[in-house]
Computed example of a mutant assay.
Amino acid sequence: MEDSIRLRHAEKEDWDEISALIFHSTNAWYQANRGHDIFTGEPAATRLFCEVYEDLDPGRCVLAVDEETSRIAGSCFYHPRETHVSLGIMNAHPDFAGRGVARRLLAYILDFARGESKDVRLVSSAMNLDSFSLYNRAGFKPFAVYQDMILDVPAEGIRIDCPQAKRVRDARLEDVPAMVELEHEVAGLRRGSDFEYFIRNEKGYWHMSVIEGEEGRLDGFLASICHPASSLLGPGCMRSDQDAIALIQTELDVRKGKTMVWLVPSDRGEIVQAMYRLKAKNCELHLGQSTGEVAPVKGISMPTFMPETA
C-alpha cells in the first residue's frame, strides 16, 4: 500500500543501498528499452552520486522508504542554486512500481522549491516517456533538446584543429567570479560553488578548462569528470560555437583513452557537425525542462548529469 511509504532524508548509512538502487534500477530501464546496461562494474561505483551531492549540498537526497520492510523504494537528489533548484538523478525500485514513489519524491522537491520561490530545472531522457509524463504532468515544460554524443577517445588523444584552442587553459579558482557572470549573462544561471568544487578537484575526478577572449575577458568554460560511474563533459558555457568546439576538443584530449559522453544543443549545427568530424556518434536525446519560463540562451549552454544541471 502507498500509505506505508514515508519520505525522509538520506543518511550516510543509506549510501550503499542508494547506490545499489541507482545501479540496478537504471540498468533495468536501459536493458528493457535499449538492450544494454548504462552502469558497468559494481554498484559501489554509483556512490559517486551520494558523494558529490553531499559535498555540494549536505542533506539534499530525499528517500521514499517502505516502513513495512525498511527498504528504500526510491531516491532523488536535488541541488538548490542561487537562481533555481536543480533536480538530480531520481530512481524508483521496480519492486515498488505503481505505488506513487517517483510522484511523491517529485512533489516533495517541488514544494521545497516553491518555499524558496524558485523554479525547478532538470535534464531528462527524451526516450523515457514514463519520466517525461511524470514531469510533464507536474508542470515541467521542455525548453531545449540536446544530443548525447559519445566518443572513444584514442589513447594518443585527438587532433585539436580549432584555431581558438590556443586561447584555452586550465581553470583557476580566481576565474570563478568571471565564470559565474558569464553563465548568468549567457544562460541566466548562477552556481559558483559548483565551479569551485570542480577546480579544487579534491577527489581527482574533475578537470576544467576556460577560454580567454580579448583583454582577459572569459569567453567560455567546460568541466569534465572521469569516474567508473560517470565519464562526461559538462557543465559548460560559451559565447560562440567556435569557443565551444575548442573547449570540447581540449577536454576530450585531456581524457585520452576514455569513452566520453557530452550533451550538445541540437540547434547549434556548427558544433554538431564538428562533433561528427571527430567521429562522435549520437547515443540518446535529452530534454532540458523547467517549471518556469526560461529566457533564450545568448550563446551555448552544455548541461551534464553529474551533478545534473539544466
Rank of each mutant, 00 (worst) to 15 (best):
106 L>K: 05
115 G>D: 07
98 G>H: 03
106 L>V: 07
137 R>T: 13
102 A>T: 05
117 S>I: 00
114 R>W: 05
96 F>L: 10
140 F>A: 06
112 F>M: 11
116 E>I: 01
110 L>N: 11
125 S>V: 00
138 A>I: 10
103 R>V: 08
128 N>C: 09
122 L>T: 15
96 F>E: 10
107 A>P: 03
135 Y>M: 03
139 G>N: 09
129 L>Q: 13
119 D>L: 04
112 F>H: 12
103 R>S: 15
131 S>L: 08
108 Y>M: 09
135 Y>W: 03
127 M>I: 01
97 A>E: 05
117 S>D: 15
131 S>Q: 10
129 L>H: 15
124 S>T: 15
114 R>I: 05
103 R>T: 15
132 F>N: 15
141 K>S: 13
95 D>I: 00
121 R>G: 04
118 K>I: 11
122 L>F: 03
97 A>F: 00
123 V>P: 00
98 G>L: 02
114 R>C: 09
126 A>S: 14
135 Y>N: 03
98 G>S: 07
111 D>I: 01
127 M>T: 11
139 G>H: 05
102 A>Q: 09
125 S>Y: 01
104 R>F: 05
93 H>F: 02
118 K>P: 05
113 A>S: 15
115 G>V: 06
124 S>E: 06
117 S>K: 12
105 L>P: 03
97 A>Y: 00
95 D>N: 08
128 N>P: 01
118 K>S: 12
141 K>T: 14
130 D>G: 15
130 D>E: 08
116 E>W: 00
128 N>V: 09
137 R>V: 10
92 A>F: 01
103 R>F: 03
96 F>M: 10
139 G>S: 11
138 A>R: 04
114 R>A: 13
93 H>G: 03
120 V>T: 14
124 S>L: 09
108 Y>N: 13
140 F>W: 06
97 A>K: 12
137 R>I: 09
129 L>W: 10
94 P>D: 06
120 V>G: 03
115 G>E: 08
97 A>N: 04
137 R>E: 06
123 V>C: 14
130 D>V: 08
119 D>A: 14
